[in-house]
Amino acid sequence: MQNDGRRRARARAGLGIALLCVGGILSACASVGPAAWDHDLMARKSMQLNTHPDLMAALEHSYFSKEGASGGRSFVGGGCGCN
């Protein structure tokens, strides 16, 4: 029980640190990156984060069934930055 509580506390601390990191990264990112009209390469299909979602899903499932670790990816962001 005590162990459980400690683990939760650690998880909360981890989440807090992660949020701080995200905040830090965001402010560091504020001046990084190309102009809106220089997103031509980002607009390429080959530069998308998940070019073949069905394949990605099948591979992730296959790894999940054999390995102790799983997850970690996400597919938001990048792209042509339009609109």
């Binding site: 009209w37 997103h39 031509d40 607009a43 390429r44 042509c80 339009c82 609109n83």
Partner: peptide, 8 residues
């Protein structure tokens, strides 16, 4: 302002 690679 537009570009050929921009879907919208």
């Amino acid at each position: 302002f537009w570009a050929s690679w921009c879907a919208p």
